[in-house]
Design a protein around this nucleic acid. Structure first.
Length: 599
RNA sequence: GGGGGAGUAGCUCAAUUGGUUAGAGUACCACCCUGUCACGGUGGAUGUUGCGGGUUCAAGUCCCGUCUCUCUCGCCA
């Protein structure tokens, strides 16, 4: 028999009454009545109430202990009397009458409460992460994460994928995010890099003929944090497939998400094929390439409605090649003036020169600009916005790019303020047809807009004969509720097309050979057409757990400054270690906290 | 690197226009209490108001600087 327990703290039921049991766990809470004492004992599986009666052998031993101390109790399972059953606990029909106890791990005074709902500051929670993880919410999230990953593996394997491991110490990649570097001891002055993603390896596995690859892959990027982006490292469900076209890959991924979201969430989610929205359309309609489709608002093009009108600010913008877009705010006619002023201020904070609006009321149109607009224009706007009485339109007029940026922010803000977002569903979509190239605003040169390894739509023919800025790529994102879960692409597996694409972006053939030699050489020896995607595991779990911040679904996350406050990383290392690695530290001029230790 | 918000007891927060000894809940310590489940009751201890400077008769409160945390833009092929 196990010394520490015969049962877990979530296990005992009425049918166990009369059994002699041993339970071990954390003291969740204590209720000392002077005579009888109640203890909620907690472990991974639940809570069980321990009762200590004055005649019990362990009654006297209950001095000098605290909540979160780990204790082993032996005792008998007894049924709770009628009226003392706790329906909130799965074990609430019974309790354990303690006969003996032993303290296994004493707890000092804890820095924040575990049993009570008490919002400790983030830095403290991260420093005492093991304590924070004892809380029910976080504990559940991490278990959910484990189950989601297990299910991802199971599902991928069941549809014919194999899991592979790829190197963690690899070569620095010149494209993309900032690398984490690891100095080489054997090769002075040389560095490994941690992979930003196993991109080249998974493509090489396709060239090696493995056909269907996946990996729960750690990725490392030295970039700044966001609420949905952990700095430093994250995990993705990395996927690559050979001999597939974009639509087939979409079907596989839709199946995966249907399975995972169906299994781990009770919320409604996009059934069947996910909507496919071309990138340029998404930018025009939502001002974002990761639209939250739960928000019904979008931008309506009303450029032509304002052409030549008497409202000179708009008319001249249109004449100068700008655009006018409208955003409908439903049923806001009764909102105070402040609502409209706040929205205008919000638009201006986001870079707009101003924002106009028209409200349709029973008494007609109300607006600062209505006196400039003739009835035909007003009627055309009403029709364009599908306006009902009580609705309003906000108008932004400027160049395309700025209108998209501000409009996207206004849509999000209106969705929030007007509470238009239904939090009880998941709305997925694909953003497709990303442009292959774009114009670098500073140098005015054509450069890759996203992934240089994507296959251009139309292949070599398009590269040779089309305006580079018109060429689309087989590059796509999957988005859920405004969160980008992943990018992916059908890859460019043809060396000639690769060289040409890089040539258009201003890179010489030798640069391609030098930087991507490993991959391009492989492609010269028989590469299958292939493509893939890599949905973020952390973000997926974050959506399923309905958490606003990615740190809530990671057991040991960095803070926003990419520090582990519990392990105290990063930290200075000894001079001996530096010497072995042939490194010398040159501190920035500004005196900083991380002085090198003089060991 | 830029912008917004925050920093008062271990933790969560309060403190009127600048005004007396900076309060409450919780946690902690002591005592009381035999059916609670956020148990209850009595009492006690707990503060460099992030740090530094300034204005003032007087600063938690106003000003300047700085540090930390957080959200965000840049960045994230």
């Amino acid at each position: 028999m196990n010394y520490y327990r015969t049962n877990t703290c979530g296990e005992l039921r009425k049918s166990d009454v009369g059994k002699e049991v041993i339970l071990s766990g954390w003291v969740h809470s204590v209720r000392d009545h002077g005579g009888v004492i109640f203890i909620d004992l907690r472990d991974n599986y639940g809570l069980t109430q321990i009762v200590i009666n004055p005649e019990s052998a362990c009654y006297q031993a209950l001095d000098n202990w605290r909540v979160e101390t780990v204790i082993r109790f032996t005792g008998k399972v007894v049924a709770r009397a009628e009226g003392t059953v706790n329906p909130k606990l799965t074990t609430g029909e019974i309790e354990v009458a303690a006969e003996n106890m032993e303290i296994l791990g004493e707890a000092e005074v804890i820095p924040f409460q575990v049993a009570k709902d008490d919002q400790a500051p983030e830095a403290m929670r991260l420093k005492y992460r093991f304590l924070d993880l004892r809380k029910e919410r976080l504990h559940k999230n991490i278990i959910l994460r484990s189950q989601v990953i297990a299910e991802m593996r199971k599902y991928m394997t069941s549809i014919g994928f194999n899991e592979f491991q790829t190197p963690i110490l690899t070569a620095s990649s010149p494209e993309g995010a900032r690398d984490y570097l690891v100095p080489s001891r054997l090769h002075p002055g040389q560095f490994y890099a941690l992979p930003q993603a196993p991109q080249q390896f998974k493509q090489l596995l396709m060239v090696a003929g493995f056909d269907r690859y996946f990996q729960i892959a750690p990725c490392f990027r030295d970039e700044d944090a966001r609420a949905d982006r952990s700095p430093g490292e994250f995990y993705q469900l990395d996927i690559e497939m050979s001999f597939i076209e974009q639509d087939e890959l979409f079907t596989v991924i839709e199946g995966l998400f249907h399975h995972i979201f169906g299994k781990f969430s009770t919320k409604k989610f996009t059934e069947g094929a996910f909507p496919r929205i071309p990138y340029l359309e998404a930018m025009r309609r939502f001002g974002s390439d990761k639209p939250d489709l739960r928000n019904p608002l979008e931008m309506i093009d009303v450029t032509e409605n304002f052409r030549g009108c008497d409202f000179k600010a708009f008319a001249s913008t249109v004449d100068n090649g700008g655009v006018v877009r409208a955003i409908k705010a439903p049923q806001v006619a009764t909102k105070p003036r402040k609502f409209f002023d706040d929205m205008i201020a919000f638009a201006q904070e986001n870079g707009a020169k101003g924002m106009a609006y028209i409200i349709w009321t029973a008494e007609g149109e109300k607006s600062p600009i209505v006196k400039f607009l003739n009835p035909e224009i007003l009627a055309s706007l009403k029709a364009a916005g599908d306006i009902q009485e009580g609705d309003a339109l906000f108008f932004l007029a400027d160049n395309e790019k700025l209108v998209q940026k501000v409009g996207g922010a206004v849509i999000t803000q209106l969705g929030k303020v007007l509470e238009l977002i239904n939090n009880d569903e998941f709305k997925f979509c694909w953003i497709v047809d990303f442009p292959m190239f774009e114009l670098d605003e500073e140098t005015n040169q054509v450069c890759f807009s996203h992934n240089p390894f994507s296959m251009p739509q139309g292949g070599m023919d398009a590269l040779l004969n089309k305006d580079p800025l018109e060429i689309l790529a087989y590059q796509y994102d999957i988005v859920c509720n405004g969160i980008e879960l992943s990018s992916g692409a059908i890859r460019n597996h043809m060396p000639s097309v690769m060289y040409k694409a890089f040539e258009i972006a201003g890179y010489d053939r030798s640069v391609v050979d030098d930087k991507f030699g490993g991959m391009i050489n492989a492609f010269k020896l028989g590469a299958p057409p292939h493509g893939g995607i890599a949905p973020g595991v952390d973000r997926t779990v974050m959506l399923l757990a309905d958490e606003p911040n990615i740190r809530e679904v990671i057991a040991f996350p960095f803070n926003q400054q990419a520090q582990d406050l519990m392990m105290n990383a990063p930290a200075p290392v000894s001079l001996k270690q530096l010497r072995e690695l042939h490194l010398q530290v040159v501190m920035p001029k500004k005196p900083n906290q991380n002085e090198n230790s003089e060991k």
